[in-house]
C-alpha cells in the first residue's frame, strides 16, 4: 500500500489548531493589546522569568510553538495552492511550509535550554 505522510501532518495540524484556539487569543490580548495600550500593567520581569523557569512550562512552550506552527504551515500550504493554482509545486511548497515550522520549533528549543 502507498504510504503517505498526510495523516501525521493532519494530526499535527489539528492538535495545533486546538492549542492555538485555546491559548493564543488570550496571550495576544494581554501582551499584544492590553499591556501596550496601558490598560493592564506589564508584569514585573522577575514574575515572568519565574514562570518561564519552571521546566514543565518550558517543555509546554516548545510543544505549543511546534504545534501552532505546524497548524499554520498546513493551512498556508493548502490555501496558497488553492488561491494561486500552484498545486503542481506541492512538494516544494510543503517543504517550505513544514520546514519553516520545524525551524521555529528549533528556535524555541534553543531559547528554552
Amino acid at each position: 500500500m502507498r504510504r503517505t505522510p498526510e495523516p501525521y501532518l493532519w494530526l499535527l495540524f489539528s492538535g495545533g489548531g486546538v492549542v492555538a484556539a485555546l491559548l493564543l487569543p488570550v496571550l495576544v490580548l494581554l501582551f499584544g493589546v492590553l499591556m501596550p495600550l496601558g490598560v493592564v500593567d506589564w508584569p514585573a520581569a522577575e514574575h515572568l522569568r519565574a514562570l518561564l523557569d519552571s521546566p514543565p512550562v518550558r517543555v509546554a512552550l516548545v510543544v505549543v510553538v511546534v504545534l501552532c506552527l505546524f497548524h499554520a504551515a498546513h493551512r498556508v500550504r493548502h490555501t496558497s495552492e488553492e488561491l494561486f493554482g500552484i498545486a503542481r509545486f506541492d512538494v516544494v511548497i510543503a517543504l517550505l511550509c513544514y520546514g519553516g515550522a520545524v525551524a521555529g520549533g528549533v528556535v524555541a528549543a534553543v531559547l528554552m535550554v
Binding site: 495545533g16 492555538a20 495576544v28 501552532c68 506552527l69 490555501t79 528556535v107 531559547l111
Partner: peptide, 12 residues
C-alpha cells in the same frame, strides 16, 4: 493561520 504564525513569533 498567517496570524497564528505571527503570534507565535511575537511570543518567542
Amino acid at each position: 493561520s498567517v496570524f497564528v504564525a505571527w503570534t507565535v513569533v511575537f511570543l518567542l
